[in-house]
Design a protein around this nucleic acid. Sequence first.
DNA 1: CGAAATATTGACAATGATCAACTCTTGTGG
DNA 2: CCACAAGAGTTGATCATTGTCAATATTTCG
Lengths: 270, 270
Amino acid sequence: MNEQDAVFAERSRPSDDLTNRSVASFLMAKLAQFIELTAEERACLDSFESEPDHIAAGELLVRENDPLTRAGVLVDGWCASYKLLSDGRQQIVNFILPGSFLGLHANVFKYADHAISTLTPCRISWFDPQEITGIFAAYPRLATAIVWDAAREQSFLMERVASLGRRSAYERFAHLLIELAILLEKRGISQSEGQIFPITQTVLSDALGLSTVHVSRTLRQLRKDGLIEPDTKRGVAIRDFEGLKAACDFDKTYLHETPVPAKTEQAITT
Amino acid sequence: MNEQDAVFAERSRPSDDLTNRSVASFLMAKLAQFIELTAEERACLDSFESEPDHIAAGELLVRENDPLTRAGVLVDGWCASYKLLSDGRQQIVNFILPGSFLGLHANVFKYADHAISTLTPCRISWFDPQEITGIFAAYPRLATAIVWDAAREQSFLMERVASLGRRSAYERFAHLLIELAILLEKRGISQSEGQIFPITQTVLSDALGLSTVHVSRTLRQLRKDGLIEPDTKRGVAIRDFEGLKAACDFDKTYLHETPVPAKTEQAITT
DNA sequence: CGAAATATTGACAATGATCAACTCTTGTGG
DNA sequence: CCACAAGAGTTGATCATTGTCAATATTTCG
């Protein structure tokens, strides 16, 4: 295990704060932002996270055009979903953080339209995508929370579209860092200070739609401006959170960190 | 009504082919790609499309940060969802075509994270977003089709991320044209030849993440290469569909034009 | 330790943005 | 229905951001 993995492993369980509140996993920590989970609901989610497989970093989990046969919960580790162009160019579409579902639309799609790879060593619990159908029938509140989660994923994508279309490299970079930092923190994955992301510049370039060379330069500029840690060799650590937010004019509306709307709450609490 | 609107109106109902097959609306034409709609299901959808409001072109339907209170079906016309940056830059995230839902996540989100405007005169049927909950309980097949539709929207977003991140202006342009042409055709909105999009270059620039000047130049190049119509003054008409596909190395996997997977079909046909 | 991957740096090229002037459309109001 | 204003599109010149290439340094990992 290298240093990077060690850093990562250290953050590999929900923070004390969250475990004390009986939120036993990152998935639950996430969904609990939206609804308060009952004991049954927690048990149900638990069954989806049991006995995760251990998978090394850099493994291809889903290939583009593969038939979709399984779904999973990323119990721990980072993955990325990305699209490949025929000439080798690739674009990371989304970072997948602990507590995220993988391949949840296997129910409705036959073939994968994007690839998924592990970025770090991961623990993944696989399940039959059809099981989701059962949840939707038996646990309406959980179903709504999962819908909320999926809708949020879409909001993140929209924000990424805006970033890639209209923000400069520098702004894009700052924006991505803030987004990840907030998500990690809300899910109880991060440490309070000096958040470190276990991602290489090559990965960053594919996420930001830049060349690796330009990522290196932008990173240096961010360091010079005192926004990120100057000494970090691999990965990125935030130094000035507020400064980064200012640099990209961050608006957190799209994170939808608000609990379930009252009307919906009523409707799902039969 | 100007000429552009006239062109648009001429295409404002499902093609004969589709009406003959009792697909009475663009929404049904879309969902019918995924499941065969029963009479009850059609009736249910019908109730969501009744008595549409007529709305002029260029109207703001949803402002960013507005509370989400209503959902709708775009019965006819084109809309765009877009994000605004504080300094005036804007990015179109998605074109909304006839037969699309508007604001379907009002159930789970409190505030809009993107704006929606009409691009052409539109007909929109508004409904209370909570009604969707009823559908999901009463019409499982319809629910699955709507989930399929939402998942597809997400696939489109991913493809847009790939375009903005890794494709050149020329490729992006070609790709968008092909995508729109296919969607329109599948929904029975288009005419067989010389597909015309009722969108100005200003709108295109916000969709492609380019300046209007560069859109004008790219458009000219596409004309010179014989891929689009040379004479069209407003809007864009495709001349060489295959050529455009080749120009952006179009891969239609992400459109997910395949009907419901067998396993899911079984699960929802109780 | 050594190979392979990752990161850095400088020089140069290219894609696309900006500015400004101008033309052509389109829609409105008298 | 015409005139005119506003919007949309075009063009050229110039500039800026970002990409490409190549050489080198540094880390990581077997």
